[in-house]
Simulated assay, not measured.
Amino acid sequence: MTHRTPPRRLLAAALVLGGASLALTGCIPMPPAVPTAAPTMPAPEDPTTSTEAADPTEEPTTPPSAGEYAYTVDDGLGDIWSFSVTSIDDNPPMESGEPADGTYFTAVRIDGNHDEGTTSFMGCFDVFVVGSDGQTYDWADTVAVTAEDDIYYVEDTFEGARAVVQLPEGVAPTQVILRSTYGHPDVPDTVLDVEG
């Protein structure tokens, strides 16, 4: 006696095997037609500090990417900021406030990025200007005035923010000092000479 498989079972088996073959071939990805190369990053330029006044007619530029800031300061308490001092400008445009009689405003222009932490730039730094008279003048003395693009209002990445310092008439800025508020004196000051 011979055993014969019903034709319907053969047809069903053929359909299952054919469907499985199609499903398997759909799971194997085809290699790309043309190999793709990894994107290239431009090499960062050497950071420089300019102490000349910025031209107000210049178009704003893209904020620097990581590694393009001149200084990185870790206060040791959870905040790390990278920044560059781009210029120091006399008589900056103001939103409110005027210099006292016999004085004028100068603005330290800063670009920055908050690498780690939650404290604002002005919470992390004190800004000072040393005058040609040998005296040190503090940004904290001008908190009642507001410059355009005032540093007090910056967020985690900013460009061209102004920290305004008041100097006596006839006194020129000779140095800019940024001091870590919470890291001082263990964290060294960032000191920049102002070119005449």
Rank of each mutant, 00 (worst) to 15 (best):
A37Q: 15
A163W: 06
Y153F: 14
P6H: 14
Y182L: 11
Y153D: 13
D55Q: 11
L11Q: 12
D189Y: 03
T72D: 00
H114I: 00
E169V: 10
R109V: 15
M94I: 15
D55I: 10
L178Q: 07
D150S: 14
R109C: 13
Y104S: 13
V176A: 04
A54D: 04
A53F: 07
A14M: 04
E45W: 01
T106W: 06
I110N: 04
T106K: 06
L178T: 08
T25I: 09
D74E: 05
P56T: 02
D126E: 08
P42E: 01
E98C: 00
G67S: 06
T190Y: 00
E95I: 15
E98Y: 10
S84I: 05
P42M: 07
P60G: 06
A20L: 14
V129D: 08
D149A: 15
S50M: 06
D79N: 12
P173T: 02
V164P: 11
E195Q: 11
T48I: 13
N91I: 15
V127F: 01
Y71P: 04
Y137Q: 11
I80P: 15
Y69E: 10
D126K: 08
V165Y: 09
P39H: 05
E116R: 13
S21G: 13
E58S: 12
E95P: 01
D89P: 04
E68Y: 14
L24Y: 09
A37E: 11
V187D: 01
T5P: 00
S120V: 02
M1W: 04
A144L: 12
Q135D: 14
Y71V: 14
G76P: 02
I80Y: 08
G112M: 03
P173S: 03
G67L: 04
T61E: 05
P31L: 09
T106A: 10
P44K: 03
P173C: 08
I80K: 14
V187K: 05
R179A: 10
A23F: 13
T57E: 07
A66E: 13
G183K: 06
A38Y: 04
P64Q: 03
D138E: 06
F128V: 01
E45M: 02
E45Y: 00
V129Q: 07
P63M: 01
A43D: 11
D111V: 11
I151P: 08
E148P: 00
E52N: 11
S65P: 00
T106P: 05
A70I: 03
P7G: 10
P47M: 13
M94S: 02
E169A: 09
L11V: 09
T181Y: 14
A53Y: 00
N91T: 14
L178M: 12
L17C: 07
A53C: 01
H184Q: 11
S87V: 09
S120I: 00
V108P: 12
T36G: 07
P185D: 12
T36H: 03
A20H: 01
G160H: 08
I88S: 06
M122V: 08
T62E: 14
S132D: 06
G76S: 03
P185M: 11
V171P: 13
P92E: 10
T51M: 11
Y137G: 10
C124D: 15
P42D: 05
A70G: 02
G123C: 05
P92V: 12
T181Q: 13
P60L: 12
D46S: 02
G131R: 03
T36C: 02
W139Y: 12
V85K: 03
